[in-house]
Write a protein that binds this DNA or RNA. Structure first.
Lengths: 163, 163
DNA sequence: ACATTCTGTTGTATCATACAACTAGATGGT
DNA sequence: ACCATCTAGTTGTATGATACAACAGAATGT
């Protein structure tokens, strides 16, 4: 195992693995919508995401959300409206800038988020039940590493997460 | 490292890891649509997926596709129609069952797939460029394992991939 | 002060999707 | 052989998420 073919074996392995990653990430993505809809019918993937982000940020405005998720501001505006109607989000004018609105998660919003987290976690636990702990830890680390390579700060650009 | 706290440490590690996996899988999913649209504008995520599946299966019918991707048959029907119109897919009647149609990827379809694969791979390679080969291989294996835990046979059920 | 820029809303179009109704072909029981 | 039932796929229709464009109101810079 130390002849000339090492180089090509190495690059073949890389190529195979990275193709597999591409394929599997796509597969993962493809089924997400239906699954999410089934798991918590009243909290769509988008609204759930928005709620989580506002919660994590301890309040933010619509423009932040749009930038972060590569969504048009009109889309965010409508999704936020829905969350306001549902009482899961509240807003108050930004004292520093009267154009902007500061969004905050309500008590009901936190409850909904907690409920969603529980059922989601139950599902993941079910799927990951027969994994060894060390595999779980390593897989989590890889996913984190992978996601951290996202062009987060700059413009999301072509080819963000999936392909 | 062999006292009573081992048990709780172990379960804590499991819980932390599985929460991280849940979180990261969701993060992965969120940005997918916009990214996919940008990466290859003429081949949407769905049509790309369908094309790939047909190619992998070396011919299959619409029902298989619907089951595999948790899509309604009407959705698949329309997406397949689009691919037929684009000339990327062809179909012929199944000799064994005159209700069914056997779908096959055309030459143009393979070209489109190859082109998409190139740009996609370029993006992934860019993101995975500083990963060691063994990490790539392990990550790919974990993703495959994770995706294989899908409730493939039975009804897709609540909570398939993401949450 | 006025032009420009920014936040957010609303109008409109598109697209993927689901559900329901339907057609045509297959299958099984009597 | 016949009818009931099941299955593959298409089409009609509605919904929901999205983008783009036009806009209003507020902030900012020259």
């Amino acid at each position: 195992m130390s002849d000339v073919s090492d180089v090509s074996e190495e690059s073949l392995a890389r190529e195979t693995a990275s193709q597999a990653i591409a394929r599997e990430v796509i597969a993962l993505t493809r089924r997400a919508r239906a699954a999410a809809a089934q798991l918590h019918p009243e909290l769509s993937l988008v609204t759930h995401t928005i709620l989580t982000h506002v919660s994590d940020q301890r309040g933010c405005n619509a423009t932040d959300l749009a930038a972060h998720y590569m969504l048009d501001k009109s889309t965010v505006s409508r999704q936020v409206s829905a969350l306001l109607r549902m009482g899961l989000l509240a807003r108050r004018p930004d004292p520093r800038d009267h154009r902007a609105q500061i969004l905050e998660v309500t008590e009901a919003g936190y409850s909904a988020l907690a409920a969603a987290a529980r059922s989601r976690q139950a599902m993941f636990d079910d799927r990951l039940g027969d994994w060894g702990t060390s595999d779980l830890v390593r897989f989590a680390a890889y996913l984190e590493r992978y996601n951290r390579t996202l062009p987060r700060g700059g413009r999301p650009a072509a080819g963000d997460t999936v392909a």
